[in-house]
Structures are given as structure tokens and as C-alpha cells.
Nucleic acid binder design. Structure first.
Lengths: 116, 116
DNA sequence: TTTCGTTATATTTTTATTTATATAACGAAA
DNA sequence: TTTCGTTATATAAATAAAAATATAACGAAA
């Protein structure tokens, strides 16, 4: 009798890092995209169901560690404040998606090699 | 003046998973290898500076969720007890290394594409 | 100058995770 | 049958991470 084949999958994650640690992974990219779309750190955080503090800390960390800020924020004024993703941030998003697409192909291609 | 080039690196992790979650990644593979080499869950844990409980929990989880156990352990007797990695476990180690080697090549090849 | 919703920040509270501690079960060998 | 070091398990203590709460700063527009 054939042994039941368990649905084993290959999965993984990639990120861009500095010596100081991880700088850009899927979560941060999604955050940047939602900031871009909403113009607000708070709205982006709400959409991702994370606290504003968590979102702000991530943005702040990226701004500190990229050589150029990825988000510029303003407080006060119409709407209470706003945040925009910089050219640098847009490039980072784009770069990550290109790498991630390659990685997904890698996972797909190597998935068939699993034989346990 | 040229902008200082920050040493951005691409990095990542892969693992084998089931619907129920991660089953085999770099940490578990190292644990299996050290159990194989030492014949002891405790010694493997000490070498990796993790608690015995943590190591035991990992082994237990793998044995539960692989269709065949990857480690067989005995208590009592000469040396107090022992643990051996099964054929299934050995295959899992081997498979993981093959996949991880491919992944390292992937990282190397795509590293040059990072331009931020 | 008052209102508004957001940014920015600190502090507290809660929850989750990890580590430490203790102890029973075990069986070969002395 | 006593000793030994390990497996197996439970519980408590300590740390760390996350979430909640509070509040000041801000500036355009009403």
C-alpha cells in the first residue's frame, strides 16, 4: 500500500539587510505601499492591524538606516498631518518586488525537489 | 561627490513546512546533526546553547509531524539514555542541505541586482 | 483663536516567550 | 540493588515583546 504523501511545501523569506540588521522585508514593503496609497502612517497601520507606534518605529528605523529617508512626514495642517513615500522609498519598493518575484520562482522551481 | 555606498546585502531563509506550520529549517537541521554526532538530545542542546526542553520540544514536534519519526530516543541504561537519528531524519538533513545550497546560490546571484 | 486628525513620544499594562528549577522514569553496569 | 546520566514532564520565575493608554506638538482651515 502506498504511503500517504504529506503535502510538504518549500517556503521562505528574503530581505535586504545592513550590518546593523534587517532593513527591508515583506512587512516593511507593505507598510510603505499603504503609506503611499493613504498618505498616512496611521491609516497604513490600521489597515495592517498594527499599532501606530509599531508602524512609526518601522518608518523611523528605515529613515535612520537608509542613506536617504524613505518617508517624509508632516504634522498639523489639513487632515492633521501626512506622510509621503520618497523617490528612494519608491525605488526600494520596486527593487524588493523584483527580488521577491525571482525568489518566488526559486521556490516554485525547487519545490518539486522535495522528496521526503 | 560620490555618495557613500552602504553595504546592502540580500539575505533570507527557507524552510520546509506543512499546513500545520514550519517543519524543518536551519535550526532544526543543526539540532538533528548534533544529535546524530553526540547520540544525545541533551548534549546537542548544550552545544547549541538552548535548553533541553526547547530541544526536546523541537524533536517531539518533528516526530509528531513527519510521517515517520526522525529521532528515536531511549532512557536509562548505559550513559543514562540515548537518541539516534533515523533514516528518515538523515534523508531530511540531506534534502535540506541540497535545497539550502541552491538557495545560497540564489542569494549570491541576486545580490548584485540590489541597487539602492 | 478654535477645531481637527495626525505625527511624535513616553509610560504603563498586558501578553507571550524563554529560561530556570524540580522530579519521576528508566535500564545497563558495577 | 545502587549508581549514573539521560529522557520525559510539569511548574514557577524571569525576560522580552506587544499592546494599550495618555499627551504634547503641529498647522491649515473654518
Amino acid at each position: 500500500m502506498m504511503e500517504k504523501a504529506a503535502p510538504l511545501r518549500l517556503n521562505g523569506r528574503i530581505w535586504i539587510e545592513l550590518d546593523s540588521g534587517r532593513l527591508l522585508g515583506p512587512g516593511r514593503v507593505e507598510l510603505l505601499e499603504r503609506i503611499k496609497a493613504s498618505g498616512s502612517i496611521r491609516q497604513a497601520a490600521l489597515q495592517m492591524e498594527m499599532s501606530y507606534k509599531q508602524a512609526w518605529d518601522l518608518v523611523n528605523d528605515m529613515n535612520d538606516r537608509f542613506d536617504t529617508p524613505v518617508v517624509i512626514s508632516h504634522r498639523g495642517g489639513k487632515g492633521g498631518g501626512s506622510a509621503v513615500v520618497t523617490e528612494k522609498g519608491l525605488k526600494a519598493i520596486e527593487q524588493y518586488h523584483i527580488l521577491d518575484a525571482s525568489f518566488k520562482r526559486f521556490l516554485e522551481e525547487n519545490h518539486k525537489n522535495i522528496d521526503l
